[in-house]
């Protein structure tokens, strides 16, 4: 089984993932449910629709904001960060 041969970071945590898993799926598997905070109320948000429709699970991937965690495939060495607001 080739499970968990991908490693990336989410803020200060090291996260493992299987090939083909999304960043959002790997984070949920690690029991990390809050991925970002909203622009105005700074409320926490996580994976909601899971298929790229709702844009709720936005994270910063390798410095680029507004990436949907539910559809970005996890890759080794990726640097994923919590997105606060629009990260502007």
């Amino acid at each position: 089984m080739s499970q968990f041969d991908i490693e990336f970071t989410f803020d200060d945590n090291t996260i493992t993932a299987s090939p083909g898993q999304s960043v959002g799926a790997a984070l949920l598997a690690a029991n990390l449910r809050s991925l970002g905070q909203t622009r105005f109320n700074k409320n926490k948000r996580g994976v909601f629709c899971g298929i790229g429709v709702c844009f709720d699970c936005l994270v910063v991937v390798d410095g680029i904001a507004n990436q949907r965690a539910c559809i970005v495939e996890a890759k080794s060495g990726m640097k994923v960060q919590t997105q606060v607001g629009s990260n502007a």
Partner: peptide
């Protein structure tokens, strides 16, 4: 309904089918 942990059934299923992950 915006609290992390509230999801759509399709979201929960896509995590299971596509990623082998149980959402909770």
């Amino acid at each position: 309904w915006d609290i992390p942990g509230v999801m759509t059934p399709g979201g929960v299923q896509s995590l299971l089918k596509g990623h082998g992950v149980l959402a909770g």
